[in-house]
Computed example of a mutant assay.
Amino acid sequence: MMKLSFLEPLFAEPGPWASVQLDTSQDIDDPGRAIDLRRRHLRDALRVQGADTATVSALDTAADLRQELPGGRHGRAVFAAHGHVVMTAALPEPPVRDTARFGALPDALPLAVQRAPDIPYLAVRLLRDCRASQDGAQGVHRTSAHVQVIAETGRWPLARVRPGPRFSHLVPLEEWPYTAPHIARHLDELADRHRAEVVVLGHAPEDSWAAGVLVNRMPIHLQNRVALVGPGDDVTDRATGRALLETEAARVLDRRLSAEDRRQVDTFHAQRARHPHKSEGITAAVTALQRAQTRSLLLTRSPALPEALWWAEEPPWIALSAGEFDTFGVTAPRAEPAGAVLLHAAVRTGTDLVVLPPDETPSTEGVAVLLRYRDPADMAPV
């Protein structure tokens, strides 16, 4: 379950808003030139849509990505209004296409979706470290073997562009059986502090013994969260600023729901069995958001949304058509892209977001709602 409170600065002041999502990937020849070209196209697009010069200039300055960026593939979202930048955020994956929009609401749904499933995890890599030393008295060269433990916390998939803190510990191989219990306790404390749901443990085949010793010294509740993977590439991680065991973590965590998301989806299925018309589709979502009844908005990554929805600054904020606002006595509603309107209503009503993998599609439209409370009529038997 993703809390949308990180987007509140985008709804704390009125628009119009300039919203940009651009590809900032570094895995191409001359990425700086490519990014500058994209920036120029986005500036031109905003001007065509009527964006003021001060806002375009502020946004363009924030999108100047000549500063050091992590390696690999990623993107950046930037939001500006009234001549100043309100938010800039990294995207774990580059957008499908660069976008620039100037409108009454910020176009922030792609940013929110990219942060899902937002799983807290712990990555741990075991490495065999053989070091040569020289005995000063006899001039004899000796080689000693060590086990190096590297651990890093993160939230998936944001860790791809914002890795968490690391710690490293070097243990002589012969001392590993006696030191592993201390390492296991430290990892347990780290996982508990970070509320890690998964421990991604990477090691080479020749280090299976060391990995087995460490796992067996963990408390059972931590053992049950361990996913054993390959050793990863320590040199690549450090050189590019990417997350520890990033590729291996992706295989474990992609297409997975967080524990809270799973609970929400299970509750939704029970709700849908009794009240499908109040649970599935864009009409159900708009109705629940109008009434501030939505606990969570459930979306697939590519929902079949209408081109636009209607909204107003004052409640109920959202409707399928302009005529619905006459009933509420709201004047001057506006039509805006459906994703921007849904997200605006979700943030304003304290609704959480659950982004579903393809096999969890709640309806043919890819849109559903988990209700915060029920009408009295809902308590009646079906």
Rank of each mutant, 00 (worst) to 15 (best):
D378C: 01
G136C: 00
P333M: 00
W156V: 08
D207G: 11
S296N: 10
T287M: 06
Q293C: 05
S144V: 13
T364P: 03
V85G: 03
L59S: 03
A304W: 04
T153K: 00
A62R: 04
V96I: 15
V200D: 13
P181E: 08
A151L: 05
V149H: 04
H203K: 06
R301A: 14
T179Y: 10
A58F: 07
F167D: 07
H82V: 02
G230C: 14
Y178V: 15
R256H: 07
S363T: 08
A62T: 02
E152Y: 07
W156F: 13
P181M: 08
D98W: 10
E197N: 07
H182M: 13
R39L: 14
S258C: 09
Y178Q: 12
A338M: 01
R38D: 10
R217N: 10
P110Y: 11
G50K: 00
D352H: 01
A123E: 11
A284Y: 09
L105W: 02
R97M: 10
Q264S: 05
P94S: 15
A51E: 00
W317S: 03
L126D: 03
D266Q: 06
E336M: 00
P70V: 11
E314I: 12
T294K: 01
T247I: 14
V235Q: 14
L253Y: 15
K278I: 00
A335Q: 08
D352R: 05
P381W: 00
F268P: 04
A18P: 03
D352S: 09
A18K: 00
R217P: 04
L201N: 04
W176T: 05
R238P: 03
T24A: 15
A308D: 05
I282Q: 03
D27W: 11
A210F: 12
T349P: 02
V354F: 05
I119Q: 04
M2T: 12
Q49K: 07
G75P: 07
G154N: 06
L69D: 08
R263P: 02
E248P: 07
A145D: 15
I119G: 09
R301P: 03
R291Y: 10
R39P: 08
